[in-house]
């Protein structure tokens, strides 16, 4: 790689300090990069720590969080920056789209003002100018009659429209990196396509790097050139999307693939991974996927397997990967 990646996360670990003083590990051994204009898909079920990962990158973890490892943005460390410096980056160079557009919008503020606020803050524009830009953005988000809708409050919009406002807020200052945390999960299936379409269009046009966090393999396969699979707070597999999905090395990735609705056409009933994601407070001693894994052997529940990189930018965490062809 000749130029440094836009975002470089190395050995990131996040723990939350509980009320009784103990540390609860949420994320451990997370490393990945995102190049300029690139889309990285981060896949994981709920409880995999993907939301905490998003918040860690934009520096909005709760105060009880303890962070180790490094996050380099454009070559400069974000970890350890004071809040004032982070405020200059947040919104202007890194944007964040929330999962629940309804909850992420201030119910007592018009949508134009919520979009304009960031423009006023970072560009020092007057409110009148910023509102005009906000209306242009709403128009580009294909909100009908943007001029008239600008003074609407969030509750007057549909769910899909609210998320488009959320995207407009995140993209208002044309950030270099956009973090989208399950951007369409809260939306109806038909609206999902539309919102993803608008998001893709904007990201491509402006050359924005996208960190797309989703539990939906289909969405990630469609949008991301590379992907990272998270499970119970750590990475299980990473690589080019086509490689990972075409030749998954971790049984968890294979389980996710088998659980896709499109894959049940061959006369099988829809597969699902048995069991649930272990609670982060009670992780098994060995592999975190042990107990749910179809390919488990006794060693799996002894030590946690190390991350192993192989091939062109691929990596996997599984004792049995890369050893036998049968797995």
């Amino acid at each position: 790689m000749t130029s440094a990646p836009l975002l470089r996360v190395d050995d990131l670990a996040v723990s939350l300090r509980l009320a009784d003083g103990r540390l609860l590990p949420i994320l451990s051994d997370i490393s990945f990069t995102i190049g300029r204009g690139e889309t990285l898909g981060i896949v994981g079920e709920s409880g995999s720590g993907k939301t905490i990962l998003s918040l860690a990158v934009i520096g909005l973890l709760p105060e009880s969080a303890a962070v180790s490892g490094s996050i380099l943005f454009d070559g400069k460390p974000l970890t350890g920056l004071d809040d004032k410096s982070l405020c200059r980056i947040r919104g202007s160079r890194i944007g964040l789209i929330f999962q629940e557009p309804t909850a992420a919008l201030n119910p007592a503020m018009t949508i134009a003002d919520q979009i304009a606020e960031g423009i006023v803050l970072h560009r020092g524009t007057g409110w009148r100018d910023a509102r005009r830009q906000a209306i242009e953005l709403l128009d580009r988000m294909r909100i009908d009659q943007a001029v008239r809708r600008a003074d609407d409050y969030p509750h007057e919009l549909s769910g899909g429209q609210r998320q488009r406002v959320g995207i407009a807020i995140a993209l208002a200052l044309e950030p270099e990196l956009l973090i989208a945390d399950e951007p369409t999960t809260a939306l109806d299936a038909t609206v999902q396509q539309e919102v993803l379409g608008i998001l893709t269009e904007f990201v491509r046009e402006k050359g924005v790097a996208l960190m797309l966090v989703s539990h939906n393999l289909g969405v990630v396969a469609h949008m991301a050139s590379r992907m990272l699979v998270l499970y119970a707070g750590t990475r299980m597999e990473a690589g080019e999307t086509a490689d990972v999905l075409g030749d998954p090395h971790n049984p968890y990735t294979r389980g996710l693939l088998a659980a896709l609705p499109g894959r049940t056409g061959r006369g099988r009933r829809m597969a699902s991974i048995p069991g649930t994601v272990p609670s982060l407070a009670h992780l098994p001693p060995g592999c975190r996927f042990a107990g749910r894994c179809a390919d488990e052997i006794p060693q799996c529940s002894q030590d946690e397997p190390a991350w192993r990189a192989f091939g062109a930018a691929r990596g996997v965490r599984c004792l049995r990967a890369l050893t036998t062809e049968s797995v």
Partner: peptide, 15 residues
Amino acid sequence: DEDFLRAARAKGLSR
């Protein structure tokens, strides 16, 4: 604890 406060911070607003 509302998300819109986190969203406001994500815009770059100070605490």
